[in-house]
Amino acid sequence: MKVSIITVCLNSEKYIEQTIQSVLNQIYKDIEYIIIDGMSTDNTLNIVEKYKPLFNGRLTVVSEKDSGIYNAMNKGIKRATGELIGIINSDDWYELDAVENVVNNYNNEECVLYGGMVNRKDNEITKIDMSSYKELSNCMFGHPTAFVPKSIYNKFGLYDESYRIAADYDFMLRLFDNNVQFKFINKVIANFREGGLSTTSIEKCKNETLAVKEKHGHNPIPFSINTEVNSQVKFLWDKLINTIRKNNWNKIFIYGCGMHTKKLLRYIPSDIKDKIMGIIDREVDKKNKVFEGYNKLTIEEAQNYADSIIISSFDYEYEIYNRINYLNDKVNIIRIYGADTVQEVNQILNDRIM
């Protein structure tokens, strides 16, 4: 079965080689690769041309002006001849068994297949994304992991080019509203490099995402870490609790004095709360040394007592981890949302029931 993979690019010389290599080196080989370039003026096309012979006629390159990223994606979809179509952007890349895992889970049905994704910064994992299609009204799952049958595009249409950032979300909600089936693959499929359009234009992304939710009649609220509406967060918080119990840690500190910590403290059971010795903050105000009933300490103070430190932040976990990982030899530093390796993420995904 032929699988079509599309990459759209514009002046992408910095990262596109890694993207191309991840397609070229796939374990599954019946792949048609389509690169839609928006008339790059840097070295992008020279890099692409270098790889053309290695694809043995399976690589098609189109370089012409477009009206935006979704216009370019639509051009690629129209050219695709594979039964399944995946789209990987020019600063992201696939795991080498990605297409093989997708094909092994495909049963010739009208079904969107998607899987786990890791966000990366400087090639290090910052966050795990294993969002459920069941919660599309709350947030979009990792689009670089999605593979869609060509028949679905023929039946339900392409991306709405009036959107600049969230047309993929709009498309998936369109399918969801029309009762198209979704299937989760419990493996890391793709790596998402932070710093692209959706991460650098955060405010525009939020506004367009809310507009898409309103269009489809969903409650226009931003992404939530509420465990009642986000099963990924609930799963990871439950995993945290089980990890603490399994390791019998008794001198726990929580790093973070924000709303995330307030919600986490309300969620964790009393037997875990009894083991929390304090809350870590970067700077402790002498007039306000208590948070939610726990004493506040600096990291320098807490490290002398802690056997484990939980990083309590959704947005800044990776930055905090880098700030305190020099303590790794003496303290267990617990990341809720991230991991160190893809293998570790795959182990987590194996326990996730979608």
Results as ranks from 00 to 15, higher is better:
Lys2Phe: 01
Val3Asn: 00
Val3Glu: 00
Ser4Met: 10
Ile6His: 01
Thr7Lys: 01
Asn11Asp: 10
Tyr15Asp: 10
Ile16Met: 10
Gln18Arg: 14
Gln18Thr: 11
Thr19Phe: 03
Ile20Cys: 03
Ile20Arg: 00
Ser22His: 06
Ser22Arg: 09
Ser22Thr: 11
Leu24Val: 10
Gln26Phe: 12
Tyr33Asp: 05
Gly38Pro: 07
Met39Asp: 14
Met39Tyr: 09
Asn46His: 09
Lys52Cys: 05
Gly57Leu: 08
Arg58Ala: 12
Glu64Lys: 15
Ala72Phe: 14
Asn74Ile: 07
Lys75Arg: 15
Lys78Met: 12
Ala80Met: 06
Glu83Cys: 00
Ile85Glu: 01
Tyr94Pro: 02
Leu96Gln: 12
Val99Gln: 10
Asn101Phe: 02
Glu109Phe: 00
Tyr114Met: 05
Met117His: 09
Met117Phe: 08
Glu124Ile: 07
Glu124Asn: 12
Ile125Leu: 07
Met130Glu: 01
Ser132Gln: 08
Lys134Phe: 10
Gly142Met: 05
Pro144Ser: 14
Thr145Cys: 01
Ala146Tyr: 02
Ser151Arg: 14
Ser151Pro: 02
Ser151Ile: 12
Lys155His: 10
Tyr159Lys: 03
Glu161Gly: 10
Ser162Tyr: 13
Tyr163Pro: 02
Ala166Gly: 04
Asp170Glu: 13
Phe171Glu: 02
Ile185Thr: 07
Asn186Trp: 00
Gly195Gln: 09
Thr199Leu: 06
Thr200Pro: 01
Ser201Pro: 04
Ile202Thr: 07
Asn207Trp: 03
Glu208Cys: 13
Val212Pro: 03
Lys213Met: 10
Glu214Gln: 15
Glu214Ser: 15
His216Tyr: 15
His218Glu: 11
Asn219Val: 15
Pro222Phe: 09
Phe223Lys: 12
Phe223Met: 14
Ser224Trp: 08
Thr227Lys: 11
Glu228Lys: 14
Val233Ser: 05
Leu236Thr: 03
Trp237Arg: 07
Lys239Asp: 09
Leu240Gly: 01
Arg245Cys: 06
Lys251Thr: 10
Ile254Ser: 08
Ile254Asn: 04
Gly256Gln: 07
Lys262Phe: 08
Leu264Arg: 08
Leu265Val: 13
Leu265Lys: 11
Pro269Ser: 07
Ser270Asp: 15
Met277Val: 08
Gly278Tyr: 08
Glu283Pro: 04
Val290Ile: 15
Tyr294Trp: 06
Asn295Lys: 15
Lys296Val: 15
Leu297Cys: 09
Ala302Arg: 06
Tyr305Ser: 12
Asp307Asn: 11
Asp307Ile: 02
Ile310Pro: 02
Ile311Glu: 00
Ser312Ile: 11
Ser312Ala: 15
Phe314Met: 14
Phe314Ala: 11
Phe314Cys: 04
Asp315Phe: 09
Asp315Asn: 15
Tyr318Ala: 14
Ile324Lys: 01
Tyr326Leu: 05
Leu327Asp: 02
Asn328Ala: 12
Asn328Tyr: 13
Ile334Gln: 05
Ile336Phe: 00
Gly338Asp: 04
Ala339Gly: 01
Thr341Phe: 05
Gln347Pro: 02
Gln347Gly: 00
Ile348Lys: 00
Leu349Ala: 13
